[in-house]
Design a protein around this nucleic acid. Structure first.
Length: 568
DNA sequence: ATAGGGTTAG
């Protein structure tokens, strides 16, 4: 087929466009064509420049292949291209989003060394990545550097910091920072309030949360659906549905709350109709036979084989990046499991019946354990012909089914997700792994990890914790330990959930010394224990007591035996 | 170009 040929500018625009769209294949095939054109025409007027490579590096990062992007980057530098500000920004943000903070910081250093001046947004990305990797100390250091270098902090900066402090077990510091900023009347916006409201809800301090929402209104910030969602879910978790009216009184501005409540009433009315109950305990994935079934979701065997197979790279001394050429030549690239971006979020449209409201109520029914209500809600949406549900919807549904052991239903949700071309995100996979663990298929869980790392994908802290829990509960302690170390060496610090899980699975397996080791490690790492730690330590304490008693009676019965290996 | 709701431990 003959087609109009682009000039450099045309190729450039298209590669950039496809890249922003996340279409790696389209971008790469245009890149290939561009190279062919430049060699055929022999003219130097067509050829990839640094901007082309920026676009390609960008799309590689977007589809979750930061590893590949880094290889291209190394080759590019060696080939004598001059990276510009965009190259650095694209790479650093790609690394931050996939929690490769070591790479991000290394490139950040190079950038400064080469005389580029980082701006507020770049610092914000670095701060966010550092805090999501649970590295509080490093984040504080980074913030100090930012201030010292005279880079102005913005609202975003403080929102990232406050949220990060909350998530890193430094709630007090988060509140202090919030109050300080509020007093100064600076750097506080609607998102700041929303972050703090969510934290109060998490801590069960609903009274304070509602007060804050009221204050938010008085200060002229509009209370959006995200904030209302946090509150409603909080109310429901504590069985305080009567607080809806309170909310109504507090949030006068706009008609969001009345809309939400009216919508709720409407849904609850339709829910009164009889519903189909198709629950069973069939495994989400057939436990007999091959792994093919799950693997078809996680990428086919051939994909992985292809990814592992090393195609010889033709030696082209003029190529800026042989690796990029190699990627462009690959006919069937393995499909990445999930892209960098999380599942899409729908904008809140207060005047319409929209998916966000559906999601809010879905969360509420699910958090209450009202699976049948949630199912019915799902049915209603199907009847209405709404097909563009977000992965948020599917993830919530699936998670609840998995928790209750309704694996077949969960499988149905996954299937429907595929039919509707709804992209799975990292949370989807977290839920799938949780399901595998609950089904006693921890072996499959580690296969998923293998596949993910081989395809150059990334894991977040929730996925590590989910995996550790799955293999730990299956008594595969070695694998749990391996995962724990894998997480650390990949630049993500274990958090309170990781430590609690390690302490728990080791105690349950009778490895009391090991359990104690993780407790020490947790305290040494400055990770503050929480109420869950208390419960687990209670159990550990009793077990240690028992073992001491056993040992003592053993010594009593055999006084000649020297017990030099008593635990501290 | 950067931040907040869903997914992890008892």
């Amino acid at each position: 087929m003959k087609r109009f040929k682009f000039d450099t500018w045309g190729y450039h625009i298209c590669i950039h466009g496809f890249g922003c769209w996340g279409d790696l294949d389209a971008a790469l095939s245009l890149f290939k064509e561009m190279k062919e054109q430049s060699s055929v025409s022999g003219s130097s007027s067509i050829g990839p420049d640094i901007c082309t490579f920026n676009s390609l590096i960008h799309v590689l990062c977007l589809v979750g292949r930061a590893k590949d992007a880094l290889i291209v980057w190394d080759e590019l530098k060696a080939s004598g291209h001059e990276p510009d500000n965009s190259t650095y920004r694209i790479l650093i943000q790609g690394c931050c989003k996939s929690y490769r903070m070591d790479d991000a910081m290394r490139i950040f250093g190079e950038m400064q060394y080469n005389g580029f001046v980082p701006d507020t947004i770049l610092y914000n990305s670095l701060l966010d990545g550092t805090l999501k990797a649970r590295k509080v100390t490093e984040a504080c250091q980074l913030f100090e550097n930012m201030v010292q270098e005279g880079v102005r902090a913005s609202c975003w900066t403080y929102n990232i910091l406050i949220d990060g402090l909350f998530r890193n077990g430094r709630a007090e510091a988060g509140f202090t920072l919030f109050c300080y900023l509020k007093k100064k009347g600076q750097f506080v916006d609607a998102i700041t309030f929303s972050i703090v409201v969510l934290q109060l809800c998490r801590e069960g301090k609903l009274e304070g949360a509602v007060k804050l929402v009221e204050e938010m209104e008085t200060r002229g910030f509009s209370v959006d659906l995200v904030t209302i969602s946090s509150l409603l879910i909080g109310f429901h978790k504590q069985g305080r549905w009567d607080w809806k009216e309170k909310l109504m009184k507090h949030v006068r501005e706009g008609n969001l709350v009345p809309n939400v409540l009216r919508w709720n009433a409407g849904v609850e009315a339709s829910l009164k109709r009889p519903q189909s109950k198709d629950k069973d305990y069939t495994p989400m994935f057939p436990s007999k036979g091959s792994f093919l079934d799950i693997m078809s979701m996680v990428g086919s065997e051939e994909d992985v084989a292809r990814a592992e197979e090393v195609t010889p790279i033709e030696d082209d001394p003029w190529s800026s990046s042989p690796y990029m050429d190699h990627l462009a030549e690959q006919s069937n690239r393995p499909k990445p499991l999930f892209a960098l971006a999380r599942g899409q979020r729908v904008e809140a449209k207060p005047d319409s019946f929209d998916i966000d409201m559906m999601n809010t109520f879905l969360s509420i029914y699910l958090s209450k354990g009202d699976l049948s209500l949630a199912c019915k809600l799902f049915e209603i949406f199907n009847e209405m012909g709404v097909t563009d549900l977000t992965s948020y919807t599917y993830n919530s549904m699936m998670s609840s089914f998995v928790k209750k052991g309704y694996f077949k239903t969960a499988r149905g949700v996954v299937d429907q997700m595929g039919e509707n071309f709804c992209e799975a995100d990292i949370a989807t996979y977290n839920v799938i792994i949780q399901g595998l663990g609950k089904m006693g298929r921890a072996d499959l869980a580690s296969t998923v990890l293998d596949r993910l790392t081989k395809q150059g994908g990334y894991l977040d802290i929730v996925m590590y914790n989910t995996l550790i829990n799955a293999v730990g509960k299956a008594n595969r302690l070695d694998e749990a330990t391996q995962l724990f170390d894998h997480m650390k060496s990949n630049g993500i610090n274990p958090d309170v959930v990781s430590y609690n899980t390690m302490i728990e699975v080791n105690s349950k397996a009778g490895k009391l010394k090991e359990a104690y080791k993780y407790l020490r490690m947790m305290l040494d790492a400055n990770c503050l224990p929480n109420h869950v730690t208390d419960t687990i330590l209670d159990y550990l304490g009793k077990e240690m007591e028992k073992s001491r008693f056993k040992k003592a009676s053993f010594v009593r019965n055999k006084p000649n035996n020297d017990s030099s290996s008593s635990p501290s």
